[in-house]
Amino acid sequence: MRAGPAGRLAWGTLITVLYLFLLAPIIIVFVVSFDDATFLRFPPEGLTLDAYRQVFDNADFRSALQVSAVTASITAGLALLAGVPAALALSRLRFRGREAMESAFLSPLLVPNIVLGLALLVLFAPIPLTDTYTGLILAHLGITIPYVVRTVCASLAGADPRAEEAARTLGANTFTVARRIILPTILPGVVSGGVIAFLLSFDETVISLFVSGQSVTPLPVAVLQYVEYRSDPAIAALSVCLVVLSVLAVVLVERSLGLRRSLRSG
């Protein structure tokens, strides 16, 4: 697209406004987190790190952070364990009901989380799986496996299945083909799927609200419970920590996979 200076200016302005619109909440939270007030206000008037100190002093937050970290790690691991073979089967095998399987794997994305949460509560309550790690992880698996399946399928889509056949004719058995040919191909999809699963589980609020309780409280739920009674800069500080964590994870993946990709083509 070739445009004159006026056109370029208008385009630049539009992009800036769009980014401001998207980032405004994060910017405001970031600014407020350094305020010295005991309630949330904008624009801030003081400048202190008290809010951050409060977050790390709060025992509820610390235990909730631990719950979320454990849940997200196990969820990501199990989502990979289930999602990677599923993706391999869906993209490499021809079997009866393949399409039904495919929709089944992607359907949790179509159901509103609040419906899922309610359904899981009804299902889990009598077992009882509510307020347990098992219940929380099972619930999170339902919404993370589809992402792993999708990222791994996407990395397989660009690969030539004949390369696997070529490896077989060169003397590689099924296991060796999987390790030497398929694994390097799907690695980017596996890593990004795992990170996405971790972040989704770490951020998951709605479903967690239904299936968690007093003993196993993940961080987003703890945050909600906190702001029910108070709204001070501590919550903003916690939010900033969560944003930084997510951004770090995404950047790390992008850097490592981006590097791999550039090596491949360069």
Partner: peptide
């Protein structure tokens, strides 16, 4: 005999090289 024990060299139309 399975393909990996047939000891036959195959060149595919798409070449099927290992990209990694």
């Amino acid at each position: 005999t399975p393909a990996h024990r047939r000891d036959m060299g195959v060149v595919f139309q798409s070449y099927a090289l290992f990209p990694h």
